[in-house]
Simulated assay, not measured.
Amino acid sequence: MPTELEELVGFIAHPNPQIRAVAIENLVPFSESEPSIFKTEELKPVKHLKFLVRDIANIAEHALTILINLTGDQEILEFVATDEKFLEMVFSHIVHPEEPNADLLAMLLANLSKYEGSKAFFHRKQEAPSQLGSDDRVINQLMDLFVKGQDGAYNKKADFDYLAYVFADLAKHTEIRQYFLAEQTYDNVIPLTKLKVFTEHKSDIRRKGVANTIKNAAFEIPAHPSFLSEEGIDILPYILLPITGNEEYDVDDSMDMLPDLQLLPPDKKRDSDTANIQTYVETLTLLTSTLEGRELMRKVKVYPIIRETHMRVNDEGVQEACDRLVQVLMRDEAPAETEERVEEERVKEIEADEDDELVEV
């Protein structure tokens, strides 16, 4: 015999929209405390929820919130992430400039991108709204939404911050990492250069996602010359600024630092999230995988910045990451054969620390 909760779940498919609205609103907290009630009858309630995302705004809002919570379950995640018609709806709705639940759609995509098969997002195409100024590739549309849509500039009801988490997860796949590092024909811009400007953004979510996207992209060692070139991606200033505070350095050190790191204001602060600081230090370590990278970091005095970070950030993960980087920067160069083996081990060590937490609301 069905329980009261199971009966309530059944009402989300009721033909009367008022009954659907009351039922689904009351079910939101149970999507976290008792998610099993949505897994009955071969996930039939989840199927209904996917349909309700197309409903009126308030019902769609609650349906999306429940789906975001439920996709922490691997069975439900796969069930949702492999529904082609549902994905088509999600992508077509999120780019609409007046979509009221665009941020919830971004959160859901942040979860769906955890599914291994999500790399297929990369190949999706759809017509872009004229207001977005993008091409027909969904990945480019998401990138332009993220850049142009911050703080309600594209859709007054959305900031699209959670798309940063989508990019971070997609960048774990080699093919998509290469996308972030290649100039796009429709606007002649390298996607990662669009993201790097957000490393000191006010949004914790945006900063965290961008930090991890940059780190994942840095596993493409052949692209490191572009990472470090002022004419290419030029990533160093955007990695170093978030880990730099207002401390003073010796004149000789400060004069050799990158121009963006000289004469910082007295109220300059490091990123408030120590996980971001650790991510950036690990990215710097990845960028020492080539001799050119190590020599450049020595030349622009990265070591004093890492030394101060180690001293001033009381976090074990940050301090261990700093120790690893300092060992690389301060040691003598090894013979080429030994160096290649050491670099392979360094990349594997950092890769093992990847963060796979699902987004929940």
Rank of each mutant, 00 (worst) to 15 (best):
Lys44Val: 14
Leu287Gly: 01
Glu41Leu: 09
Val347Gln: 10
Glu337Asp: 15
Pro265Trp: 10
Val197Thr: 07
Ser226Asn: 10
Leu52Ser: 06
Gln327Cys: 11
Ile306Pro: 03
Glu34Val: 11
Lys202His: 13
Leu181His: 01
Arg294Thr: 15
Arg298Val: 02
Lys47Cys: 14
Gln262Pro: 04
Ala102Gln: 07
Asn111Thr: 01
Thr244Met: 01
Val53Ala: 05
Glu337Cys: 04
Ser92Arg: 14
Glu357Val: 06
Asp353Asn: 11
Val9Asn: 13
His123Asn: 13
Glu230Met: 13
Gln184Asp: 11
Pro222Val: 01
Tyr280Cys: 00
His48Met: 13
Val359Gln: 09
Leu8Val: 05
Leu109Lys: 03
Ala21Tyr: 05
Asp187Val: 06
Glu231Gln: 12
Phe79His: 14
Phe167Gly: 01
Ser134His: 07
Asn26Gly: 09
Val251Lys: 15
Pro100Thr: 05
Leu296Ser: 00
Lys44Thr: 11
His123Gly: 08
Ala336Glu: 15
Glu295Tyr: 04
Ala182Asn: 12
Glu316Pro: 04
Ser113Cys: 07
Lys85Phe: 14
Ala120Lys: 13
Phe198Ala: 00
Ala352Lys: 06
Arg331Phe: 07
Leu49Gly: 04
Thr71Phe: 04
Lys114Pro: 03
Phe51Asn: 08
Val361His: 03
Ala120Leu: 09
His173Glu: 12
Ala120Cys: 04
Lys44Cys: 10
Glu32Ser: 13
Ser31Glu: 07
Gln327Ile: 08
Asp267Lys: 13
